[in-house]
Write a protein that binds this DNA or RNA. Structure first.
Lengths: 148, 148
DNA sequence: AAGCTAGTTGCAATCGAGTCGCATCTAAAC
DNA sequence: GTTTAGATGCGACTCGATTGCAACTAGCTT
């Protein structure tokens, strides 16, 4: 579940404040939507929801804020195997990376945390002497319900 | 290395023929470019190279051929962490999946084959009862040269 | 609390990857 | 050679994302 149960609400705001980044009404609205989202949102959905909190939020501000959060390493950008078009989806970066599985039939997105994934990243860092900043493992296939 | 050393040249063409798919001059040009490419190509690069072999090749034919090859499971679509824009990159699907690492500083793309990756996919199939069709692991960070 | 200024915003124009409708053409089956 | 399902080129179009610019403002300085 993308909902960060273990995280303090408003955390994104304070993380930006800690970095000395200016807070605005529009950013507050966008961050609040990201923090309370129960599923992966694309930029258009994020815009619509943010406008319900602050009607002045513009599309370009959403994109600019997403770019900021990406640069700060606070969110991850996902493709979800492009199951629903070419756009991107966003989610807060939490402590543990997880795998995203997209069902090619019903479109359901499942998340999965694995120690083997952590081990694999360790191997890449060690064997390739590659310092990992972001990693994204997306899998397309058929979920348990659809593969029958 | 994206160059399929262990594969027969012209393999894509015969794989399409085996499936009873019509061969055209334009497709031949596009397939030949894909088969002899020494790095990951995006649609625009593929178009330019294919037009050197057959000047009549059109952009839409490139996209249509890529869609065909994707549907047939003969190529993989990559984002390479969007290091150079929002487009996609393509490579022939070989026997073994590999990880793509993109250096955020020099832009170099490295490929890596790992048994742990295979093990991880096995775990997903078993623990999540998810039948994997495609998987894509992309990592962004700093390569050995750039992380000094 | 008033002023300053670098950073942020809305708006409209724009970019660029990818798609589509349609008339024409052609590979390959007969 | 004839036939026809499938492929192509072309141009228009979609849509996610970006940008230039004038106006605005958060948060410091005094």
């Amino acid at each position: 579940m993308p909902l960060p149960q273990t995280e303090i609400p408003g955390r994104l705001q304070s993380q930006l404040a800690d970095r000395g980044i200016r807070m605005t009404g529009q950013r507050r609205a966008i961050l609040q939507v990201m923090e309370t989202a129960t599923k992966h949102l694309d930029a258009a959905q994020l815009l619509r929801k943010a406008q319900k909190l602050d009607a002045s939020v513009d599309r370009s501000t959403v994109y600019r804020t997403l770019k900021l959060l990406k640069r700060q390493g606070l969110i991850d950008e996902l493709d979800l195997m492009h199951i629903h078009g070419e756009g991107h989806y966003y989610e807060r970066k939490l402590n543990r990376d997880h795998i995203h599985m997209a069902c090619l039939r019903c479109g359901k997105i499942t998340e999965f945390v694995s120690d083997i994934f952590e081990k694999l990243k360790g191997q890449v860092e060690k064997d390739c002497r590659f310092r990992i900043v972001v990693s994204r493992l997306e899998i397309g296939g058929y979920c348990s319900g659809c593969s029958k």
